[in-house]
Amino acid sequence: MSVYFTKDHEYIRIEGDVGVVGISEYAQEQLGDIVFVELPDSGKSLQSGDEAAVVESVKAASEVYAPVSGEVVESNEDLADNPALVNETPEEGAWFFKMKLSDQNELENLMSADDYKAFIEDLG
């Protein structure tokens, strides 16, 4: 199983030809208590870097961008009722949406887990 990260703190976990997208542990820590998540509809096609979702904490709101291009196949309805999941298990249960990748090669533009770890250490 391979996981990639973006510099905007999204992750994409590859499961076959589907990528599972969410925000990283570091991102949820920075945002604080998450109060609302707005998710894309299934069938929506996204270009890499498009705004795909919105995540709101009490004092901030951020866009979640599509790490790669593809089509949304499922979004995580559990988050609508229980946004706190994003704080609890950001990189597991609290995924945002699943997408069918249109070009696997785009993954090469992203960071590996180790690269990302070094990246956030640099951020202090």
Binding site: V35, E56, V58, P83
Partner: peptide, 9 residues
């Protein structure tokens, strides 16, 4: 202090 997280969730 008031619980703003509860109010927004």
């Amino acid at each position: 202090r008031l619980d703003e997280t509860l109010a927004a969730r």
